[in-house]
Computed example of a mutant assay.
Amino acid sequence: MQDTATLSAERLMPGVISYETPRVADDYCRWDDSGSWLLGYPFLPLALGLDELPGAHLVDLGCGPGDLTCWIADRHPIRTTAVDASAAMLDLARSQHPHPAVDYRLSLDNGMPFLDDGCADAAMASFLFTCIDDRKLMQILVDEVARVLHPGGRFTILMPNPDQVHDAAFEGFHRGEPGVRYRSGDTLPVRLRREDGSWASITNTYWARETFQEVLAEAGFTGPTTELTPLLADAYGVADPALIASRPWTAERERPPFILITATR
């Protein structure tokens, strides 16, 4: 049988990517995610202020295979409800990244009925909205996050930087096409390198930062909103030193590949 990592991108992932089949979920786990671990994931606890929230309840919306969820749980004395719409992803999370402080749950009709109103201290969504091509669905999900957060709770969205979209070539991924101007809700091509050196070609949704501001405001996030766009220089003392030293990270020195938008309930 042909190995998942060698399947053609066209056969594996046509259109805006969905992780609901085991084959696609498994291929996701083979992607080279080093750029996210350098300038994305390690900045989430900082944006959420988890060091100031011992014993907090964190909601991880779109948790995927659970590697980030467990990385955070290992470093902070919190409990996490990790939610995903993909049963295949949750199967991977439970088998590969079990954690006593993490409860993996399947979302139901884009909601979290297993969580009470105002029960969470913080929430995050990592690269979730690139996989959603419907603004109404985005609003439903953010509304649900607002429901489960108590007043004063923070919600951080980690996304590709919308300013870096015109053939943005970073370590491990290329995003967009030269000379193309994307509007919020447009689809755009993305090439992602797998750990074996092969490449996957997928399609994501482009969302402008203004769209996130609108959606958050409509959901009732009335507190201050902050944005963080880390560069390589910001990774020192935050990301793994061995990862920093492992590659030249040429583009990442001057162009921030990701953005973290944090809003307060």
Rank of each mutant, 00 (worst) to 15 (best):
A219P: 11
W71G: 01
G197F: 12
V190F: 11
L39T: 04
F129D: 02
D240N: 14
R79Q: 15
A200C: 02
D32R: 01
T211M: 12
T205D: 02
Y206G: 09
G237N: 10
T203N: 01
L38W: 05
L243K: 01
W71F: 10
L260S: 07
T225Y: 01
E195L: 15
V142A: 06
L243N: 08
L232S: 06
D143C: 07
D91N: 12
P77R: 13
A146Q: 10
I132Y: 01
A5D: 08
P151T: 10
L58P: 06
D133N: 15
F212W: 15
L115D: 05
P230C: 11
L158Q: 13
G62R: 11
G197N: 08
I17G: 00
A9Y: 07
D116G: 07
M159R: 11
R175H: 05
L228A: 06
P224C: 09
E218M: 00
P100V: 05
F129M: 03
A120H: 03
A101D: 15
D234H: 10
E20N: 11
A217T: 13
A87M: 09
F170D: 07
I72A: 03
C29Y: 00
G237S: 09
L68R: 06
A217I: 01
R105P: 01
A9Q: 06
E52C: 03
I157L: 14
R209N: 08
F212C: 06
L232E: 05
P14H: 07
R255M: 03
E252L: 04
I17Q: 02
D91W: 02
P160R: 10
A93V: 07
P151L: 06
G179D: 12
I132G: 11
A251Q: 13
D196A: 08
G172D: 04
R11Y: 04
R255V: 07
G35P: 04
F221W: 11
R253K: 14
I78Q: 10
I202H: 08
D27Q: 13
H57L: 05
D60E: 14
P224E: 13
R183H: 13
S201L: 11
W249S: 05
P77C: 07
G66M: 11
I78E: 11
D84M: 03
V215K: 12
I140N: 07
M112R: 09
H97I: 05
R105W: 03
P14C: 05
D196Q: 06
D240C: 09
I202V: 15
P100G: 10
